[in-house]
Amino acid sequence: MNSLIITSIEQGLIFAILAMGVVISYKILNMADLSVEGTFPFGAFLFAKFISMGMNPIVSTLMAFCIGTLAGLLTSVLFTKIRIKPLLAGILTMTILYSVNLKINGKSNIPLFSYDSVFNLGNALVVLVIIVLIIKIILDLFLKTETGYLLIATGDNESLVRSLGKNSNMYKTMGLMLANGLVALSGALMAQMQGFADITMGSSIIVVALASIIIGDTIMKNSHKIENTTRAILGAIIYKIIGGIAIDLGLDPQDLKAISAIIVIAFIFYNNSMADLLELRKRKVELRNAKNSQSVQEF
């Protein structure tokens, strides 16, 4: 049981990086970027390539991040320059990455057991906590900078960004690149943890990321001070622990995907119907106010 929890936390921390990436595209930029399904294994295969070329595992992992950002650049070019809808742009990038991933090492599955990994630097849990904390702190600091706020404003109201004299597409590109870089980094770490890179490892990963984000948001609904990054991290860990326990109790791992999707559907349904309810109530109040002020005017 204990080792199950530790494994779940370790995997949760890896998925926390994925979730922080998806926070940028989905929550901040308000875009459902499906390319991450390709970017996650992309990171894994890039790591496999560099480590097998004899590079050090830290450098190989960082390279996966850097080259992973290019996936975001591609989606963004499809979207902002060729004006393909974001959803399709993401799917096209994912499709291209599928072939690219197979080409990188010429195989669909690369064992990595014989190579060095970042987890040889120390206890895996400690290494992961440090990596996740570094990313969280950098991301939080970035989102408080002038540029970071412009990224948030881009997801909120592009016309405001243009009225400030900035090209909002540039900030979308930046956000998507950062998001995909983090997803690739997460994939590279997953490959090292499980000891192989595999072409299928990205399948439905977007649902895992969304489920993590949604869980994180829901459990801390009433504490507005908590950053999105913290929520994503805790959400991913809780998601993995619950999933781990469920499987331990006899749930077929194959069913976990459907359950994750149902979690996402249920929470989005709940949030939307709450929003509708609030909107309705607000409109009634506004209507009443308008009537009141009208009568004041007439008076």
């Binding site: 970035f142 408080k144 900078t145 002038e146 004299g165």
Partner: peptide, 8 residues
């Protein structure tokens, strides 16, 4: 103005 990496 220019948007930098300084705090907003």
């Amino acid at each position: 103005e220019k948007f930098t990496l300084r705090r907003l």
